[in-house]
């Protein structure tokens, strides 16, 4: 059963989410990957204002292909989240409520999720054509010079994600794998 949620996410919504829950996200989300994260954290370290307000927001780790004329966006699936582990706790401490990517997160990120009541979702990696269909608007809001790595504001409709890490320490990657792990006779 899928749950329909709208961004920004409140504490109450995050409190209700558990690892394994399937969610259809609606509303505005922001894109950022390696280079944009690096710049955001550099601004935080210098004590300067960020180009986007993170409070309650969701960041999608994606670098889409360029749209063809008439398209909102090109292929737009998630990239590997682990590369953002060095930066994510800083953003979560500033009020970021959710992240969408694929792949495992570090202990430091999982701790930051608990501390800040936040959640880590995965979208299906390698399903960029399918996921692009759920993105109805896209505009660059910062770092245009980064090309595919610029921060885009996306409007999504029923964007399919699954909760990987909830704010209680639940981890679908660990639990799912444990459930299907087998011993093999060598």
């Amino acid at each position: 059963m899928e749950r329909r949620l709208s961004t920004p996410l409140s504490d109450a919504v995050v409190e209700s989410l558990r690892a394994g829950d399937r969610v259809l996200l609606n509303g505005v989300i922001y894109t950022a990957r390696d280079a944009a994260h690096k710049r955001l954290v550099e601004l935080i370290e210098k004590g300067e204002a960020l180009p986007i307000d993170l409070l309650g927001q969701v960041i999608y780790f994606v670098g889409p292909t360029p749209p063809k004329p008439g398209q909102v966006i090109g292929s737009a699936g998630p990239t590997t989240s682990g590369r953002m582990d060095a930066y994510s706790p800083r953003l979560l401490d500033l009020g970021l409520k959710g992240m969408i990517g694929k792949g495992s997160r570090s202990e430091a990120v999982k701790e930051a999720l608990k501390r800040n009541k936040a959640v880590y979702f995965a979208a299906t990696g390698g399903a960029g054509a399918l996921l692009a269909q759920r993105i109805v608007a896209s505009r660059v809001v910062a770092y245009e010079d980064l090309g595919p790595e610029a921060i885009h504001e996306l409007e999504v409709v029923d964007f399919p994600v699954v909760v990987i890490n909830d704010m209680y320490g639940g981890d679908l990657y660990v639990e799912g794998r444990k459930k299907y792990e087998r011993k093999v006779a060598c």
Binding site: G63, T65, G74, S75, G77, G126, G128, A129, A132
Partner: peptide, 13 residues
């Protein structure tokens, strides 16, 4: 979808 619309299978080409 990718075959029909020409949108790449994955954004990481």
């Amino acid at each position: 979808l990718a075959r029909r619309t020409g949108v790449p299978l994955c954004q990481d080409t």
